[in-house]
Design a protein around this nucleic acid. Structure first.
Lengths: 156, 156
DNA sequence: CGTGAAATGCGGAGTTA
DNA sequence: TAACTCCGCATTTCACG
């Protein structure tokens, strides 16, 4: 399936506001709601959307510290990596993780209440995984979603 | 405002599927749609949501490589940092950036078509910012949103 | 464009302090 | 009584074929 300008606009708009109604979407595209509805349905069916997320206001939830945690493992067999990922999924405080090639194996985007919770997260939760070689945390001053993607040289 | 169990459920459900309709939300909470609607409205007004994002299927868009790019700047005055952030916002391919304390100043989550586009991104786009001291890229095998947050020890 | 379904706003009932 | 939370209903608006 080849995307035209309207399709791209739909992707872009929903990227920035996933709760736009079909009607609002159609108004932005200057097309009839029914037409827009069909396009959105098609895009959805074809799997152009992975998921729709609400980004919560962490401050409002009393979550005041965000950190990037770089983790190096001692071994890299699939079994060990998989069990580490499983562990990550069970932990409270991880917003997102990246599994990387290179010196650092995993980068974790972690959000916790305060420095005590961070300490507990690292020392009590993370560090007791057997195959951890090294952990290094960096405080996040600020993080921001840009979604600056392009399709056939058209910026979304 | 203090959140009760129902509010927390709304946050959690929308976190995982931002396009849930009010009706669906109400059904999950076992409350009337009107009630649910009022709660969602209130949560929205009070600013519990930062944004609603659609996560696009990058493969479908011909975007086959994701990398984490660590950037160290030579200087850290606010003016220089701000102009770097402004530059980031103008670049094509950056999904998200983190501004960090520590050895690495910025971590960029970048998505591009192929290794040529990556090379061009780094050498032509990024590296020509005057105050860059060091750039190091790591290929992302896999990244995943977990959204494992908690509020008053209740996991969202 | 039409039909059925959903969103939205309001009055009132039940509960608690 | 005042403050909350919920629901049912009526109206408007929208989704969807």
């Amino acid at each position: 399936m080849k995307l035209d300008q309207k399709d791209i606009q739909i992707l872009r708009l929903l990227q920035n506001n996933a709760r736009l109604s079909n009607k609002e979407l159609a108004a932005e595209l200057n097309i009839a709601p029914s037409t827009c509805h069909e396009r959105l349905k098609k895009l959805t069916q074809e799997g152009y959307f992975k998921e729709f997320n609400a980004d919560l206001n962490l401050k409002k939830l009393g979550i005041n510290i965000e950190v990037l945690v770089a983790v190096r493992l001692k071994r890299h067999e699939r079994e060990i990596v998989n069990s580490f990922i499983k562990k990550l999924k069970s932990l409270d405080g991880i917003i997102r993780f990246y599994h990387l090639a290179g010196d650092t194996d995993f980068m974790l985007h972690v959000a916790v209440e305060n420095s005590n919770s961070l300490r507990s997260f690292i020392m009590d939760e993370l560090a007791n995984f057997s195959y951890i070689d090294h952990i290094e945390s960096s405080i996040i001053y600020h993080s921001e979603c840009l979604h600056n993607l392009s399709y056939n040289n058209v910026i979304l």
